[in-house]
Amino acid sequence: MYKIAVMGDYDSIYGFATLGLSIVPVSTPEEAKEKLHQLAGGQYGIIYITEAVAAELTREIEKYQEQITPSIILIPGVSGNTGAGVQGVKATVEQAVGSDILFSN
């Protein structure tokens, strides 16, 4: 059975521990890159990453986009929402459905 991890700055992710998720606080891009590879190579099927940390790991995250696991999902952190998480979900759904789900006339 796969596990779920949440990676980002400590203030943004500490609450997820109460839900039983593994939290992985990181403070530098190098540390985040190393931890992402460890999580992806382990038993983690879903990895939530704060948008701020993900912005520093774009190339690393792209390496896993064509794989079934892990699924990497961007979430807002305490510093706010950049919209990157919503844009990622939108792009994935567009690819699967073949249409813009947020298009309005």
Rank of each mutant, 00 (worst) to 15 (best):
G80Y: 06
G77Y: 01
F103I: 03
Y14S: 10
E60T: 05
E62P: 07
I72R: 00
A5V: 02
E51L: 12
L19M: 11
V6P: 08
I49M: 09
K63V: 06
G45C: 05
E31F: 00
G77P: 07
I4W: 05
G41Y: 00
E51I: 06
T92G: 14
T28W: 01
L57Q: 10
P29K: 01
P29W: 03
G88F: 00
L19A: 15
P25S: 02
V24H: 05
S104T: 11
I75E: 09
V53K: 00
Q87H: 07
V86K: 11
P76C: 06
S27G: 08
P25H: 04
S99K: 12
K33H: 05
E62S: 11
D9A: 04
A52Q: 15
Q43G: 14
T82F: 12
I61D: 03
H37R: 15
Q38Y: 11
I68R: 15
E56N: 09
V93H: 07
M7D: 01
Q38T: 11
I4T: 14
E51W: 09
P76R: 12
A5T: 02
Y64W: 09
G15I: 04
S99N: 07
L74Y: 04
I75W: 13
A96C: 08
I23V: 14
E30N: 11
V26S: 05
